[in-house]
Design a protein around this nucleic acid. Structure first.
Lengths: 153, 153
DNA sequence: GCTTATTAGTTGCTTATGCAATTATTGCGC
DNA sequence: GCGCAATAATTGCATAAGCAACTAATAAGC
């Protein structure tokens, strides 16, 4: 397997990493009746309350449909409330409920725990470098997506 | 958003990166009638032919069910053939068909293209460091999964 | 002011993935 | 040799995610 392992792309390792992260988050959030996908939405709402599903989708770089379904699940679970925006009756304003705000501490601690696990043995410089490289790779491929989309038109 | 961005976990960036990679691979492989998930299976089979679904799952760090379904799709598309292992009639031996072997060049070129996009602007040292860190993080979280599994028993 | 384009949200379809339960086969203990 | 544990594969169920098509509301062009 050595020849393969040398030449293989990083895609597979990122895939493995991502699936493991989902698994971890799923297990940690299960007691609260939500899935791993709801985590980033809650984190964003903790920081900026009352924004639309569209803005949530944009910030989290996901599809509007994904945003809609994730918020719907959070609403059913009682963590958010949706109010029609009086300024634009197409859009909702998504607010955390009291229950949602109370979840904040748990979410931060789970987030820290995950970071601690992932970056165990990393020096501070390595942690920073790793974060930056992930962001750079993400920006690189975003650029490609942008080129593709404009080419489609 | 700055305060949030500083403190946020790397999980979100990895999620974005992973989804973008799936998107890219999905588009590149669509002309061949397969999805992004089939790519690592084909790559592994190009290197080691005639192994079982179980071994494929182990190498690719995924569930046996995922392996089974991915191989089934490859079989329907005509890229692999499954023969019952005469030494162990529970298991299959998965072989690439001629059509599957011919896909090799395409897969390598798609893989290289993805790497080129992701790592654009990275120096050789950075590329190597990035790969290593992704692997380290993956091993870190694998260790946690292992501890959890043994604790469940 | 009316038509058209854009935008926010929803829903159906498809793919991917993991877990649990089931079946079939192998192998171990005795 | 028999019964039971372990293993390979399959299937059902649940979650997640993107795309496309649709509705409803707003904005722009004229």
């Amino acid at each position: 397997m050595d020849k393969l392992r040398e030449q293989e792309s990083i895609g597979r390792d990122i895939s493995h990493l991502f699936r493991s992260i989902r698994n971890f988050m799923g297990r940690r959030l299960q007691p609260y009746g939500i899935g791993d996908a709801q985590f980033p939405f809650l984190m964003l709402l903790l920081h900026e309350d009352g924004i639309s599903q569209e803005r949530l989708a944009t910030y989290l770089k996901c599809d509007r449909a994904t945003s809609a379904r994730s918020i719907a699940r959070l609403e059913h679970a009682g963590y958010v409330r949706r109010l029609v925006d009086p300024e634009d009756r197409r859009a909702y304003k998504v607010f955390l409920t009291e229950q949602g705000q109370e979840l904040g501490d748990v979410l931060w601690s789970v987030s820290k725990e995950l970071n601690g696990i992932l970056l165990e043995g990393f020096s501070d410089e390595e942690k920073l470098a790793f974060r930056k490289m992930i962001k750079r790779a993400g920006m690189n491929i975003s650029k490609w997506e942008q080129i593709r989309k404009t080419a489609d038109e």
